[in-house]
Design a protein around this nucleic acid. Sequence first.
DNA 1: TCACTTTGTGCAGCCGTGAAACAAATCCGG
DNA 2: CCGGATTTGTTTCACGGCTGCACAAAGTGA
Lengths: 403, 403
Amino acid sequence: MTPTRIKLDRGRGALGPALELVHTGRAPTRAVLTTELGVTRATAGAVATELQALGLITVDPRPHAASGAQGRPSHRLDIAADGPVVLAAQVHADGYRVALVGLGGRIVATAPACMTVDADPARIIGDAVAAGAELLRTTGRRCLGAGLAVPSAVAEPEGTALNPLHVAWPAGAPVHDIFRDCLTEAGVGVPGRCGNDVNLAALAEHRHGAGQGSHHLLCVATGHRGVGGALVLDGRLHTGSAGLALEVGHLIVDPAGRACHCGARGCLDVETDPLALLETAGVTPDPARSPLDQARALLAGDHPEAAAVTEAVAQLVDRLGQGLAAMVNVLNPDRIILGGLHQSLLAAAPDRLRSVVADRSLWGRSGSVPILPCSLGHNSLVGAAELAWQPVLDDPATALSAP
Amino acid sequence: MTPTRIKLDRGRGALGPALELVHTGRAPTRAVLTTELGVTRATAGAVATELQALGLITVDPRPHAASGAQGRPSHRLDIAADGPVVLAAQVHADGYRVALVGLGGRIVATAPACMTVDADPARIIGDAVAAGAELLRTTGRRCLGAGLAVPSAVAEPEGTALNPLHVAWPAGAPVHDIFRDCLTEAGVGVPGRCGNDVNLAALAEHRHGAGQGSHHLLCVATGHRGVGGALVLDGRLHTGSAGLALEVGHLIVDPAGRACHCGARGCLDVETDPLALLETAGVTPDPARSPLDQARALLAGDHPEAAAVTEAVAQLVDRLGQGLAAMVNVLNPDRIILGGLHQSLLAAAPDRLRSVVADRSLWGRSGSVPILPCSLGHNSLVGAAELAWQPVLDDPATALSAP
DNA sequence: TCACTTTGTGCAGCCGTGAAACAAATCCGG
DNA sequence: CCGGATTTGTTTCACGGCTGCACAAAGTGA
């Protein structure tokens, strides 16, 4: 009995970083893989061969376009079109959304978005997972993991959803356990992980969107109600010691502002959300429509009193700028990405917002941080997929051999 | 010509982590080194031998006290008493302070603290370095690096001191270059690095003081004027993308508060510094004495109107708690350490401070973060030494062979 | 067509670690 | 006092992951 094990020893340690480079689109060829990883061509070649053997990427021997450079053209590395996927789900106030997502953040298949409001987290998560399992059956793709985005802070390491303002859930819902149980029940035998939607959106934007290349990315977004923040440090989500970091909704941005349920006055949360825009512009909210939609309609010019809207926008932008400046002073990010209504406010008055942030932050230099809008559709969903991909990116060989 | 190189190959990769464990006092014996590093006894033994060969540690073959446990007693690992040192300097409003610091944060030699105020950063840093060079001459110790703590944010990567409020320097002083030039001039042929004093104090507390074991350590301190903050993430100082993070002095903690030079009202900076305490207690500051000393005298009971002092303390504690709560919501630390006047305020009204932070932070859980006083003397100085030790901790072999 | 440049691959070898066997030092129970 | 039991330190061997080098391959440009 010979102890002959197959010797695929070349480039196992660099496998994870290499896959991450391909995943984030920073390694189109073996040549750049060599320089980006800081290894020799031999190792990079072995890594590419290994990733190919695992079915994660394909190598296209045709020249990588006409690069115009001298020398032998490099082969293109592509994400395998029929490679494995992960199950990504997002739960929000109006229902849920499910998709299968491949490497590179590519949405491979989507179930029709479901619109319901359910006070029972187990039921809505169960429905979402069932829809995802159905997608897996019809497409026949191999599934390596599952991720869930919820509109609430998720406490680590217990995985309970704290203060889910935007859904009718009880506080402290054990979403992580529920998600895992639903996966088991639906016959999807993969581990599941949960995260806050804004956190996951930031992660997605960092890897595939407007945050690419940033080392200290701050992301702030308003959804239907409430403000969420996220910080991506050197490619990793910073969730604090217990998953509760970047709860920026209660920074005080207007000493004389509205009363907030937290007890203070003028919190970012109540000063820069859709309802605040409607109120300030003198519009009575229509309870039948989502405040975010109504606010966006206002910004799109759908209002007789344009002057009132302009003034309201100016006020919200000032408040938002004040809050962003506080975060800039504390976190010193190199880029800020805004989502939800904040993204619309940025579009409506970009110069004003940037100058407020610059004036209010301590050092001119850190105040000149670029402020950009989100660039991905469904970024929370893609972020949930990132959560599921993470174990594979950390150690592709074992993640693919395990099940 | 035989290519016989000496084969001291065992345990080179784990050398840095091992030294860090010894440095922070977490590896008293080879046995715990084995478990802490997660390597085999063979590797741990080789690492210890290598560190000994480098002259950084000594092995005491006598039993490590009477541990009471069964089995063969482990040998003690000690930091070499005559090992190399680094030059640490601290510049503050009243002058400078210099010391030679060994591994483990042990101050090996100190020059008498110098009390001068000089508007020229080159002169005072030059004096400090010269005093340090003299210490090196008299003690004859080998010097591996130099660190400087300044009372101002230090922009990375240029190394300029921004807004040095507490010394009479011009803004934008290139402290890093000045420090390097002074070292060269004084004949100390080692690289020098600069950092903010509160940042470095936090680093020192994390490695040798009240912050040991923390993964998300927040440190806030008031010196003579102004508030500084620092964050130590997983043992590494988080200075943001440009070295300007944790500039927490201008968080708004009292909407109706004092006007601040930054343009806003009620900034943490002006609401919780020594002058604020004196003013609130109705004491006219004596320009001949430092405000911090006067404030501390007040807290020590040196005042006829005790009730006024108690009330002033309560007010400052409330403001401080508000500011800390904002930081807790943004950063979610697992421990908070207070220095300077804030440390004294904590001592004067610990329960009140803790309850304000808990009430004001969003989730009760993150609000229950422990708040502790600094536990090291001269923590900025020791922190400056940590800065100088860092290259050695990262790669002991090359750091010691280079010069 | 012949340099020249850049990319991919095969081969030897080294460096750092783990596994296992062995030796050493102490406690414990007789 | 002596022989396990237990834990620690050392020695030896093997092996995985990488580098360095030589060479082949595939383009560009005079």
